[in-house]
Every structure is written in structure tokens, then in C-alpha cells.
């Protein structure tokens, strides 16, 4: 068990207290333009995001679909580095000291930086959690230890293929929240079966007290609402990134965030109201 609590724990506690469903948008740091990233992060919060997931661009995003591959490639072409990701988080923190920030990425850039240096810089910049896609719980002994020294949660994925025995083993190692991958496939894949979610999430809840967020394949307000009926939070990734891809200016990017994320927020709030009403009744 993790012995510390940080912004992620406080945020989920507050959400639970207010009967509000969490909204976790993902953007790739430096996409579509490195100069816009911090303003996009603020706009996401202003329009209803509760936690932010920021992708560290990588050359070989094995678990991501074409949308995030292209976003990573575009960010790298514009000179994005890990240093710049930390700088963006620090700049965001200057105006927002409450919203949790999770970095999502792959192992090799973390190892190249050095686990200790990476953790110190991440914590110093104001990061709260790490989701290393190609570092399952089985390989996470060292990362968990060092991240924890810096009060950073390592967040793990649970997939539809994950057996109950694995969830059992993983649960005590997980920090922050459990990220349930709602479908087999890479990020941004098509079909989401909301009906199959309830038993899967129930199985996780039987084994862990952590909040459960659901991501991969959620793009419409209706899908978000359906998922939120059973989950604590909803992650919106590729759908947002592909819309941001169309933005030619920072103003346009902010407008996309306002409209799209605002729409998802409204859907989640309908769900939250129903939960609150049920609780009152």
C-alpha cells in the first residue's frame, strides 16, 4: 500500500464527496504546438476537467493508435523533450496548484533520464502520478519504490483480458486510481461495450478500494455518460487529440476544448445528478 496521499487522492475524495464524476482528458505534450500546451491545460480545467493526463512524446508508442502516434511524431518534430514536458507542468502549476497532473508515457525515455532524476524533476514540476504504459505491475518494483520516495503514484492499467488473479496481485501495488482499459486494442479504437463494463469494474472494486477510471474508445457525451454510470472517472484521449489536430491557432484549440470537453462535462454531470438523486432517495 502507498503510505502517502497527494493531489490525486484529494481530488478523488472531493469528487466522491460531491457525487461528481471525474473527467480526465489526455493531451500529448507539445501537440499540436508546444507553445499552446499550458493554455490548453488551463482551458481543460476551466471547462470541467478534474485531473489532467499529459502524454510524454515517444518515437515508438506501441500501445497507441494512429492518432496518438501522429501527435507524438508532430510534437517530437517540433522539438519536444522531457525537459520541456516538465517545464510545461511547472508553468501550469504556477496558476493551478490543485488539479492533479499525470504523465503518461513509455519506459525508455524515463530510463534514459534516470529513474531518480526523472522522479525528482517530475515531483519538482508538480506531477502527481505516472502511467508508464509498457511497465505492467510485474516489472514495476523499482519504479514504484523510487516514485513513492517522491510521493508520485504509479497508476496501473487493468484490461478486459486481465484475470481476477492478476487484479488481485496488482491491487496492493496500485496508487492513485485504477485505469480500466475499456476495450482490447490500442488507444482510439472504435467500439466500446458499456454493458460489459459493470461486471469488470465490479470485479476490480471487490479487490481494490481505489477509484476506477475508464478510458480507450470513449468519444461521445453519450458514451461518457454510460461509462460514468459505473466508473468514478472517464478518460478522453484520442478523440480530443484528433480534434485538436484540426486547430490552426491557439484560439481555435481553446474553442475546441471549450465546446468538446464542455459537452462531455455536461453529460457527466447528468450522470452525477442521477447518482446524487439516488443517494438522496
Amino acid at each position: 500500500m502507498t503510505r502517502f496521499s497527494n493531489r490525486i487522492d484529494r481530488r478523488f475524495a472531493a469528487l466522491a464527496e460531491h457525487g461528481r464524476k471525474g473527467l480526465i482528458p489526455y493531451v500529448t505534450a507539445g501537440h499540436p504546438d508546444p507553445a499552446w500546451t499550458v493554455e490548453i491545460m488551463h482551458a481543460l480545467v476551466a471547462n470541467g476537467a478534474d485531473l489532467l493526463e499529459l502524454g510524454i512524446p515517444f518515437s515508438d508508442v506501441m500501445a497507441d493508435g494512429p492518432v496518438i502516434q501522429n501527435a507524438c511524431a508532430a510534437a517530437l518534430e517540433q522539438g519536444m523533450t522531457l525537459e520541456k514536458v516538465f517545464a510545461q507542468v511547472a508553468e501550469f502549476r504556477a496558476r493551478d496548484s490543485d488539479t492533479p497532473v499525470i504523465l503518461m508515457g513509455y519506459m525508455n525515455p524515463v530510463e534514459r533520464c534516470g529513474l531518480e532524476t526523472f522522479s525528482r524533476r517530475a515531483a519538482g514540476a508538480g506531477v502527481d502520478g505516472l502511467l508508464i504504459v509498457d511497465c505492467p505491475a510485474d516489472e514495476a518494483v523499482e519504479t514504484r519504490r523510487v516514485f513513492a520516495e517522491h510521493e508520485l503514484h504509479q497508476i496501473f492499467l487493468v484490461a478486459p483480458t486481465t484475470t481476477e488473479a492478476r487484479v488481485e496481485r496488482m491491487a496492493p501495488l496500485a496508487g492513485g486510481f485504477i485505469y480500466y482499459v475499456s476495450l482490447k486494442g490500442v488507444t482510439g479504437s472504435a467500439a466500446l461495450d458499456a454493458g460489459a463494463l459493470a461486471p469488470a469494474i465490479g470485479s476490480i472494486r471487490d479487490r481494490s478500494d481505489l477509484p476506477v477510471a475508464v478510458g480507450f474508445g470513449i468519444s461521445t457525451p453519450a458514451q461518457a455518460e454510460a461509462v460514468a454510470a459505473v466508473a468514478d472517472a472517464v478518460v478522453i484521449g484520442s478523440a480530443l487529440v484528433s480534434q485538436l489536430d484540426q486547430a490552426e491557432t491557439e484560439t481555435a484549440a481553446i474553442e475546441i476544448v471549450t465546446e468538446y470537453i464542455g459537452g462531455i462535462r455536461a453529460a457527466l454531470d447528468r450522470c452525477g445528478d442521477a447518482v446524487a438523486a439516488e443517494a438522496r432517495a
Binding site: 500501445a63 509498457d134 510485474d138 484490461a159 482499459v181 486494442g185
Partner: peptide, 20 residues
């Protein structure tokens, strides 16, 4: 048993593939 050759090897993949 965990698929390592000394410090090398292992299973650094997305959770979706672990059971496969």
C-alpha cells in the same frame, strides 16, 4: 521464472497483452 536474463529481458508491454 519471470523471464529475465540477468538484468535483461522481462515483459515490458501493455497490460492487455500480459495474459496472452
Amino acid at each position: 521464472a519471470s523471464g529475465h536474463f540477468g538484468a535483461f529481458g522481462g515483459r515490458f508491454v501493455s497490460e492487455t497483452l500480459m495474459v496472452a
